[in-house]
Design a protein around this nucleic acid. Sequence first.
DNA 1: CGCCAAGTTGAGGCGCTTCAAGGTCAGTGG
DNA 2: CCACTGACCTTGAAGCGCCTCAACTTGGCG
Lengths: 353, 353
Amino acid sequence: MENKTKILVIEDNNDIRESTCEILELAGYNTFQAKNGKIGVEMALTELPDVILCDISMPELDGFGVLNMLSKQPSTSGLPFIFLTAKTERTDMRRGMEMGADDYLTKPFNENELLNAIDCRLKKRDQQRLIVNDALNHMETLFKGRKGLEELEKLSKERKVRSVKRKQVIYYEGDSVAGIYLVVSGSVKTFKMTEDGRELLTGIYGANEYCGVAALLSGENYRETAEANEDTTLCMVPKDMIEELIGKYPDVAANFIKLLANNVLDKEEQLMQLAYHSVRKRMADLLLSLKEKCGSPDLSILNISRSNLAGMTGIATETVSRILGDFKDCGLISRIGNQIIILNSDKLEKIKN
Amino acid sequence: MENKTKILVIEDNNDIRESTCEILELAGYNTFQAKNGKIGVEMALTELPDVILCDISMPELDGFGVLNMLSKQPSTSGLPFIFLTAKTERTDMRRGMEMGADDYLTKPFNENELLNAIDCRLKKRDQQRLIVNDALNHMETLFKGRKGLEELEKLSKERKVRSVKRKQVIYYEGDSVAGIYLVVSGSVKTFKMTEDGRELLTGIYGANEYCGVAALLSGENYRETAEANEDTTLCMVPKDMIEELIGKYPDVAANFIKLLANNVLDKEEQLMQLAYHSVRKRMADLLLSLKEKCGSPDLSILNISRSNLAGMTGIATETVSRILGDFKDCGLISRIGNQIIILNSDKLEKIKN
DNA sequence: CGCCAAGTTGAGGCGCTTCAAGGTCAGTGG
DNA sequence: CCACTGACCTTGAAGCGCCTCAACTTGGCG
């Protein structure tokens, strides 16, 4: 009975709300009713339903407001959210979806439409949970075999999962550090900015990588900005937990030490390249290391913007273009659209300075 | 009786050896005799005397050979070493001193000369021991209050102290890591080399700083070369000990973590500067951070070579010269010999890019 | 003094950035 | 459907910051 799927219906019209709930109860769901936005938000926070259905035009707090408030709370930000509305206008629909709603039902809807939409959302959520679990499993590499560690389970339960859209900022330079972010899907870039607005990428983090580690462990505030490279889901591991784990388990600490030490060595290598290698050589090395990192061994296709390439190497974007053009002429790479395919790694490696 | 000062006399001439020892015994020292170089080395290693007197011209192994072999052993490398010889030629004297001998007595010597020389060496050694102890005390910052930790005492007893001359290499890029080096006095620079021989300084370590930390903790081989900037004494902390301490004490691990994390952030800052700041600005920032690091707050005199400045910023030495000239013309710094005096920190900070 | 290493100064030129203009592609609206 | 817009990439031309090479000066040291 407790683990029946819970659905919260927020709707000011009594008839619609009650009839909707009736359908859902008959279908085997456990329903909660809220007759305005304010109550809806409260119930969402206390009940943590599995799906939320919400009208747009309501007194007190409208649907957009509800979505906005729930997005801000970590515990509710990941919940499947479906708008219900009479307005068929596309602008509203757009606005709703852009704010992070998952679906949109226009009243009047029939029973099937409703149940299908809910079923679809639940499936998606389960799928995402699988991915998150997968990511959490990967965390055990860092926390070395502490499977089922209570802290991790707590994390998993608390669902400190956050989705961010492309270009959205995760944290700004100067912000205080709340924890490290595990990238569940998508990718994140971190960069520093000069006064005149040019940016140097300090890292790109793909699935199952952590960002913000050095800042957290240094005890300082962030000295870089993190931004989603594409639509991305993140899982936040709070600072307290990391510190507790490090204090408790020396081997966890040892993992972090190794991670950081290697990081230092890498940065030093980069420093030397920046100082003394020509732009051509830096570009070649970057392509190779990107291939190493995220490409399949034989066919290596890189999908990365020119400005990111520029930011990683400290080169002007125009120069990146020119050099890639050069490389293409030499038969080292080829391009499909904006993707780069590395054809001849050996020659790339041997590019003179 | 056991803690009488021990003196080893290595000398092939029986008369001289015995008479010398007699004088020393009368003066209250405990003496050991070796009638050739080979025996001398063995006795030095087993007895670990407080001072060694050694003839130069001997059968089997001459005095230079003895000094050379003892210098290679960590346990004996720091022992006060006095040459005894009939040869008054200066070339021999030079050669002996260059190899690291501490003094030189020409036969025949009288009682006073001998006792004074020994007394002087013992005093110097005690002085150095004080400095080393001071340095070891500083290590407790890293090992957070573990005063008198048995490992540290072991270290102190084993006297893994090594003196290196200016320009001498401490370890090469690619060497496997034996431990970290605590700089007791003098200074050490670490750098990476490009194929064409240009070097980028990755660090300068003064008294009471550690070098080689990141390499040790990463578990890899050195990726940089360390060289003495001037005549320097080092204390080596073996890898095993560090690992043991990290494994045993979480707070020690936490110290290393913080050290490394800050290191990463610093390198990232440097990367941004290299990528986007003009040479003038990089130079200005470097001067300021050097002042911060090792200068007194008000009067700040920096004593550093042009080529080191060049290596730290990735600039050509000629350009360093020109820029310092510029700064001088602008009244930002002044120069006495090769020393640099910072006159106007505020203006230096505000140098445009 | 005479040597060598380190620092300075000058002239020339290359490698890269910058500015500017045009091209391409996906998304959007009429 | 096509034109429009904006983000991104490409290409060209111009300029200059910094490196390189080479000659000279300075300073430390036997």
